[in-house]
Amino acid sequence: MSTFGFFCDTSACSGCKTCQVSCKDKNDLDAGIRFRRVYEVVGANWNKTDEGAWEHDIVAYNLSIGCNHCENPACVKACPTKAMHAELDGMILIDPNKCIGCRYCEWACPYGAPQYNKLKGIMQKCDFCRDYVLEGKPPACVSSCPMRVLEFGPISQLIEKHGDNRSVYPLPDPSITRPALFIRKHPGAKLAKKLNASIINREEVKE
């Protein structure tokens, strides 16, 4: 079980992507590799009321996620070389000396966390800024967030402070991997499914 986790307040995230940029900077990532990704979730619709008037529903919020260092990590089970492994403290790390670059972890992860480095031919991903954490500092994404939307800490503390909600639309069912990701839902999130909201910056995040 992971000892640490992230908290993301989707009700307050402005979508500035500072976390994404600071992560890229800290890890010196090439273009196309994103250990942290900010997804923009948007949905809207017009409805005719019983009185014949038209009203609109609209929802828009941002969701910042990296690797969730899951309790039941699909990537670790899938990895044929054990390059993707769980440390004793629960962190899911990749041993670059063992990785064959088969990208099977990328398929298996429902959160899109493992990223393929074409130049190195191996997978890479968020390691909670392990070096910072060992020094007692928070990960780069957390310390750079101007809205204080992201938090990092022991799972027990995060649950005590924010509750044990691990999902918001359109994140996958948390029972699949038990992510160490805790979320404060945006008030509009309850409408998101009804409005068929979707990630509108998929090309930006995936390409």
């Binding site: 044929p80 390059a83 088969c102 099977y104 191996i122």
Partner: peptide, 20 residues
């Protein structure tokens, strides 16, 4: 594979990995 030199290692997780 992105890094075929490590290919022999792919036999090391038969316990849980269908790819292995």
């Amino acid at each position: 594979l992105g890094n075929p030199t490590n290919a022999p290692r792919s036999l090391s997780n038969i316990g849980t990995s269908w790819l292995s």
